[in-house]
């Protein structure tokens, strides 16, 4: 017998291991930008977002404005709103307001993917368990990356840029293989994103992701509406 918290912890192990290597790349990036290790670590501990942090570190390094910082985070991280919105449909009665305030901090792409694929309703203890290790892995990886940033050869740090996208592919391909509708949405989103990048270059990267993803998901929802109700 395993408690819901323990089950969550266990489900968080692969996410935490993955984060260790991805945030390692963020630590390296921060040290390449000349930012102190403590700043990179604090950013990871308080933000828990790969693309958002990478863009945020660039803004800090370029001494950009705070308005730019807010808008950039808003655009890049808006998907967490959709994920939080989606997860809010699956929570059970143990989710008091204070627990929602706490758990919402840990909503990431991978946590969402694992949580949303659980059968039935989500308990607060399971979600707390699920986010615990990823937060530790994300912060620890940034620390290690920041420290190792100067020691590793440039060829290795460049190759580590693929770690993040490799994870994304590992999340979307298995369901795309199983369901033709997901495959269509994934292919459409990629195609729209490529079109934005090369044919509509005036659309910034963050907006291109939101427009492409929304269009693809709308088409998917329109052509292939899902059937089953969320389990009560």
């Amino acid at each position: 017998m395993r408690s819901p918290y323990g089950k969550g912890l266990l489900h968080g192990v692969p996410i935490a291991l993955g984060y260790l290597s991805v945030s390692f790349g963020l630590g390296i990036k921060a040290s390449q930008l000349g930012l102190p290790v403590w700043a990179a670590v604090l950013t990871s501990l308080t933000n828990l977002t790969s693309a958002g942090q990478a863009a945020g570190l660039d803004i800090i390094a370029a001494a950009g404005t705070l308005v730019e910082m807010i808008l950039t985070q808003l655009v890049i991280n808006l998907r967490y709103s959709m994920m939080g919105f989606s997860l809010s449909q699956k929570l059970d009665g143990t989710f008091t307001t204070s627990r929602r305030l706490l758990v919402s901090f840990g909503i990431t792409d991978e946590v969402y993917a694992v949580a949303v694929s659980q059968p039935g309703r989500l308990t607060a203890s399971y979600m707390l368990g699920l986010i615990s290790l990823p937060v530790v892995g994300w912060t620890l990886g940034t620390l290690l990356g920041g420290v190792a940033g100067q020691l590793l050869p440039a060829s290795l740090t460049a190759a580590m840029g693929l770690v993040l996208y490799g994870m994304f592919l590992a999340i979307i391909l298995p369901p795309a293989r199983k369901e033709r509708s997901v495959l269509l949405v994934v292919l459409l989103a990629a195609a729209f994103s490529v079109v934005c990048k090369y044919l509509l270059p005036f659309i910034s990267g963050g907006f291109a992701v939101i427009i492409s993803a929304l269009l693809a998901a709308v088409i998917g929802a329109w052509l292939f509406p899902i059937k089953e109700e969320v389990a009560e």
Binding site: A51, R79, M82, M83, F85, S86, Q89, D109, Y112, A113, V116, Y165, F168, L169, I171, I172, P175, A176, S181, V182, V185, V186, L187, L188, A189, A190, F192, S193, V194, A208, V209, S212, A213, L214, A216, A217, V218, G220, A221, F224, P225, I226
Partner: peptide, 16 residues
Amino acid sequence: SLLYYLPYAVLSAMTF
């Protein structure tokens, strides 16, 4: 349905 497809779409658009 939209909420079901959106995360896959976001990750795909971010990757490619």
